[in-house]
Design a protein around this nucleic acid. Structure first.
Lengths: 259, 259
DNA sequence: CCATCTTTGTGCACGCGTTCACAAAGACAT
DNA sequence: ATGTCTTTGTGAACGCGTGCACAAAGATGG
């Protein structure tokens, strides 16, 4: 993951570990739930359980923000909600544009989770002229031609890319050129961006493939060797260097690697 | 030419690092692109650039799978595609169910990336009776009542949860009870599952919040101290333990913690 | 057949993140 | 006020992941 950090000796040693930052939203969500149930305080143990993490990890995470707990009691829920929100920058308004209003883009536009926490969908943008003006999630889709104008007029610094893979890099370049410095990419492509621009990637296909790997291992633990042998016999793997044909004889490498 | 090729006997060390597994789909995607352009071989440097990673990291990743490269030349594209596919378990068919056919669920059902690599949407399931029978992505939505039957009849071991947060845990429990052992969760909730079940989480809101954190830092680097002071003065943070009122005097903690 | 050149595979060191374990801090009861 | 009990905050150890740097392997050219 590209963390694209511009190293700067910040005013204070603002070195909150990246792993901690990634968990803060998790804590915030758990705390919000407690807040709605008017729970006044919570211990690190309880909160850690709600967030699905280790309690020691949670305490260390909070220690990077400051000493917000009370020994013997726990953490004040409301106070902690405020502190984390402020640390994450959620006390301000973040206008966001979504580019690519296909199935996924429309789903994102309708997703309530955006508006819930400081994020506001400022515009929906699509390259298809037929989409222009069409309302999605109660908001007219605008054409890509106006991308730069929309970005600058709304002061957008966060962009969401939900286009097909082929268009993603081009859209990304235009977003960056127009002033966007944070991008959430749903397109299955590696985006290249200049320093100072953050990119986070959400890739459904990759997540599934990772699950498949573990699933295969789980299944293989029962009939490990037998299954591997059968599969190797059933599926014929491509012979080494079959296409090029300009290399040495293919006898130098067995067609089927030992499984 | 090969003299006596000393085949490494124990390539099957089951310990492929998790970080490596997470990158294999990335390599596979880059390799597929090369394969479609009929590129016969690729060096670690080139492939690493295409996948957006360090070349040394890529070589080390591949070394966990075995010695599939040729020194002085690089890696055979077709051969590597096969090896990674096999390692990820993509040479077999993975039936998948999607539970929760709202905006996101429908988008997932329509997403071509699923079918492209061994994954097949076996069923769409929703709790709303009005949805039952309605076609989404050319497939009739089925009711939650039949969840267990669908899982067992199709031999499904991977489930995708795209329901609202409130229903996620219940759906998860039923999936697991029915035999699902891998879950991709899009609902903004922490799922608790028994040992042996893998859960991966995709959370749009969290990704945005992480971006907001970095975005705030980038903005803060220009007018760091001034901004912090102004924001602290403008926004009044909740006084410590304001709601509970049963604790000590609130003077024991400053209303604004030092930033 | 030998020399040179390219590229892999990996030993090693380093830094980050996680976890344990415990002293210090504070609430609460007496 | 003093003691006990709960819970935080953190020092320290450990393990994993990353990146450097280089020797070995093999292709290529003379």
């Amino acid at each position: 993951m590209a963390t694209g950090r511009t190293h700067r000796p910040a005013t204070r040693s603002r070195g909150i570990p990246e792993a901690t930052v990634a968990r803060l939203p998790l804590y915030l969500r758990a705390l919000t739930g407690l807040s709605e149930r008017s729970v006044p305080t919570v211990s690190s143990e309880e909160l850690a359980a709600a967030a699905g993490v280790n309690s020691a990890k949670l305490r260390k995470d909070f220690s990077y923000l400051g000493s917000y707990g009370t020994r013997g009691v726990g953490y004040d829920v409301e106070y902690l909600v405020y502190q984390i929100s402020r640390e994450l920058g959620l006390t301000q308004d973040w206008p966001v544009v979504i580019v690519g209003i296909g199935n996924l883009g429309a789903a994102l536009a309708n997703y309530g989770g955006f508006a819930s926490r400081g994020f506001r969908v400022a515009a929906l943008i699509d390259a298809d002229p037929a989409m222009a003006g069409k309302p999605v999630a109660g908001m007219p889709v605008q054409h890509t031609d106006d991308l730069e104008k929309i970005i600058s007029e709304n002061g957008v610094s966060i962009g969401v890319i939900a286009t097909p893979a082929g268009a993603a890099q081009q859209v990304c370049d235009r977003l960056v050129a127009a002033g966007v410095t944070s991008i959430l990419n749903f397109a299955p492509t590696v985006l290249s961006v200049p320093d100072g621009v953050d990119v986070r990637k959400v890739d459904l296909s990759i997540e599934l493939q990772i699950l498949a790997f573990h699933e295969q291992r789980k299944a293989g633990e029962e009939a490990a060797v037998a299954e591997a042998a059968a599969s190797a016999a059933a599926v014929v793997p491509p012979v080494r260097a079959a296409g090029s044909g300009r290399k040495g004889p293919d006898g130098d490498m067995p067609a089927v690697m030992p499984a």
